[in-house]
């Protein structure tokens, strides 16, 4: 096992870089982080739209959310990777395609987190902000959203964990993320499948479990400092 790690650790971590594009664990982490970050503004907008009293605004978003959540991410990935180039004529790389699909999925799930957070906030917060004369947008910006995002932080960290796990699907379209690299290593070594895949599992475990513990601690901290004024 140690010899295995010794020989392939760099390949596992960064793929072919610098002799090729970035791969491995570094790619997995980078893609996930970038996807979540890019999805935040869109997720915020969609979440606000989701709680809008205007049906013309919240119904299309609700439909979008339900449709996206009813189909596998892999299917959307296939659409993006196989069908889209035929239509647009632009062939995007595996990494770019994966990023686009991840941003789409993350913004939908973030939208639900934001919407749930806004709905969970006591009505009195918005009312008192509006009673002072603040418009709806100002009230959202200064009173509702700061609280919603603070309370939603554990859920957002959990979404990062989901995203990291989702990047593994890039394997199927040939993206050199960490699962793909592991299989490459397995093909090269051939006799140590158990070790290779246990190391892969352990890597994911450390990363994802670590982040979920962080989310758990955040949630505990939020509950200890009760941010309820009444």
């Amino acid at each position: 096992m140690l010899e295995l790690i010794d020989t392939y650790w760099l390949y596992f971590l960064v793929g072919q870089y610098p002799d090729g594009p970035l791969g491995g664990l570094a790619l997995t982490i980078l893609l996930s982080g970038a996807a979540l970050l890019l999805a935040m503004p869109l997720g915020l907008l969609l979440g606000i739209a989701r709680v809008s009293p205007y049906r013309a605004v919240n119904v299309p978003v609700a439909v979008l959310v339900h449709v996206v959540r009813a189909v596998p991410l892999l299917l959307v990935l296939f659409w993006a990777y196989f069908f889209l180039p035929a239509v647009t004529g632009i062939k995007t790389s595996q990494a770019t395609t994966m990023l686009i699909v991840l941003v789409l999925f993350d913004s939908i799930y973030l939208a639900e987190i934001v919407a749930a957070g806004i709905r969970a906030l006591p009505k009195g917060q918005l009312e008192s902000a509006r009673s002072l004369g603040l418009g709806y947008r100002a009230a959202l910006r200064h009173v509702v959203l700061p609280q919603t995002l603070r309370h939603g932080l554990p859920s957002i960290v959990n979404q990062l964990v989901s995203t990291i796990k989702a990047t593994s699907l890039g394997y199927i379209i040939g993206l050199s993320e960490v699962s793909f690299i592991a299989t490459q290593i397995n093909t090269l070594v051939f006799t140590q499948a158990v070790e290779v895949y246990l190391i892969l599992a352990l890597t994911y475990f450390i990363l994802c479990f670590g982040l979920s513990r962080l989310a758990f601690l955040l949630e505990r901290r939020l509950q200890r400092r009760p941010a309820q004024a009444s």
């Binding site: 964990v161 989702a166 699962s179 299989t183 895949y197 246990l198 599992a201 979920s212």
Partner: peptide, 20 residues
């Protein structure tokens, strides 16, 4: 629960098919 939940399904499938 934590051991299984924190590893993506794809990695599970690879393990059961190639390693197990």
């Amino acid at each position: 629960v934590e051991a299984i939940r924190n590893v993506p399904l794809l990695a599970h499938l690879l393990f059961w098919y190639f390693a197990f």
